[in-house]
Design a protein around this nucleic acid. Structure first.
Length: 457
RNA sequence: GGCUCGAUGGCAGAGUGGUUAUGCAGCGGCCUGCAAAGCCGUGUACACCGGUUCGACUCCGGUUCGAGCCUCCA
């Protein structure tokens, strides 16, 4: 398969370091608050990538961290007068709940920073030993000047970077571009003992330490939002390369960001859309569909219209599956994923193209009159859908929306009455029942095998 | 200002040097007691200006506009 690499700015054939074991690391959240829709594009995109890789390689280890040491967590904990673990555990749980809604499969490893403080110490020490870091005024800093490759990932010239630095440069920095690996904690701040005094890790070091520990010193794929390219990934790359003396990542992958109705999502604009709120109004699958309806590297505009279109599109796909509900796919049917679907997914995760192939399958299913062929199409739809994390629900349940059991029995009771009226050619009564149900957003569809219904919202 | 990316039909969104993307919406038809779903048909879209070419939406240059990053940020 081909993947686009931020570092080389080209799409190239993916060649794992070890074809028997692919390694992938994605930057996870800092758990100090509920996550918004934008935070979930990476987990969804890389969940899809992991699913595809698992289909193509014998073993994949996918790590996505939880950053549970951070000054924003400290601030929230201090404000509420609780231990930082109270904050981080609460929002880790919330994050998992949200991922579940989106159908994101668990990763193989989910390292937490608090469990890797000594690994971080070791890595910092190796950087100091190698002349790439220095202790100053209670801090340990990475020396940007010690690494000639600095700036290669984000295409930045270190000279210009330093000249353009718009922040006040701390006095203890040898060079304005140097960044913190370890910083001291006040007595009333959370901190960990270290060879450089009680303190806490800087922002970038946790990812390199955890990636090295769980995946190795060189990994195949490292992903995240493209706002992380600089400084976070540039700095990770510098740390790891200098610490281990080998290439850190072979394929850097970055997703585009999400806008809200053409505006950047930001707290000051008041347009931050939390996933937990969105999930109250929409099935997670619709949210996931929107996220996959554009290519992962392109920016994505979140809007009511986009949501509506996603919902209608899924309805078409589930509609095709519903018509085949009575057909059983045998367990030994084998791989039915269409070559065109595989090709689209293998082309740097071209999910919009892949989705188009799903619609081609739906059309085929809707026009086929061979059950044998339909069984294969159904299998193809389900297997392809699995790569995307879509279409895995029972079509009946999907069309029933959030109706509960008593809603369902009421609806089906009325449908039975209507069937009787229809049998008696009592069209007035039949239409009356249709009308009653329509007021409950229930749309009826009469077919040769009886009446089916769906919730229209 | 610097770096990077982009501009496709009403909307969303792929793609290609010469052939239908696809979905949603619209229109006409079939089917239906009526509907819905489905099916069939239906749209000379490729920001602008030059250039290369037998031929460019697709390659090159420029212009305009938009997005992201420039040490909090998915």
């Amino acid at each position: 398969m081909k993947l686009y690499n931020t570092e080389t700015k080209t799409k190239s054939e993916f060649e794992p370091i070890n074809p028997e074991h692919v390694t992938m690391y994605v930057c996870g959240p800092t758990v100090y608050n509920y996550c918004h829709i934008g935070n979930f594009r990476p987990p969804v995109v890389f969940d899809v990538l992991a699913r595809v890789l698992r289909a193509k390689y014998p073993k994949v280890t996918y790590a996505r961290n939880i950053t549970d040491i951070d000054d924003k967590i400290n601030a929230a904990a201090a404000e509420q007068g609780v231990d930082i673990s109270v904050i981080s555990e609460k929002f880790t749980q919330a994050y998992h709940d949200d991922l579940d809604v989106l159908g994101v499969l668990p990763t193989d490893v989910e390292p937490k920073v608090t469990e890797h403080v000594t690994d971080i110490h070791d890595q910092i020490q190796s950087l100091i030993d190698g002349g790439h870091a220095y202790a100053a005024d209670g801090h340990v800093l990475f020396s940007v000047g010690s690494y000639e490759g600095y700036g290669e990932l984000s295409k930045r010239d270190p000279e210009e970077l330093l000249a353009g630095a718009r922040v006040d440069v701390a006095a203890y920095k040898k060079d304005p571009g140097d960044f913190v690996l370890w910083k001291p904690s006040e007595d009333d701040q959370p901190g960990w003992d270290s060879p450089w005094g009680r303190g806490r890790p800087g922002w970038h070091i946790e990812c390199t330490a955890m990636a090295a520990k769980h995946l190795g010193e060189s990994i195949d794929i490292h992903g995240g939002g493209n706002d992380l390219v600089f400084p976070h990934h540039e700095n990770e790359r510098a740390q790891s390369t200098c610490s281990h003396g080998k290439k850190y990542v072979n394929y850097w992958m970055h997703n585009g960001l999400i806008n809200m109705n053409q505006e950047k999502m930001s707290k000051s604009l008041g347009n931050v859309l939390l996933l937990k709120d969105l999930a109250k109004e929409l099935p997670g699958e619709v949210i996931r569909y929107v996220l996959l309806s554009a290519h992962y590297r392109a920016p994505l505009d979140w809007s009511d219209d986009a949501v509506q279109q996603a919902k209608s599109s899924l309805e078409r796909l589930y509609g095709a599956l519903r018509k085949m509900a009575h057909l059983e796919v045998p367990n030994d049917i084998g791989n039915q994923i269409p070559a065109a679907f595989d090709a689209a997914m293998s082309d740097d995760l071209n999910t919009p193209k892949a989705l188009a192939e799903l619609f081609a399958l739906a059309k085929l299913a809707n026009t086929s009159d061979s059950d044998d062929q339909k069984i294969k199409i159904k299998a193809a739809l389900l297997q392809s859908g699995y790569w995307l994390g879509l279409l895995q629900n029972d079509p009946e349940a999907w069309f029933a929306g959030d109706s509960d059991d008593s809603d369902v029995s009421e609806i089906e009771g009325l449908i039975a009455q209507r069937a009787e009226a229809k049998a008696n050619k009592d069209w007035a009564r039949a239409d009356e029942i249709r009308e009653i149900l329509a007021r409950k957003n229930v749309v009826l569809e009469d077919g040769p095998e009886g009446t089916v219904w769906r919730i229209e919202s």
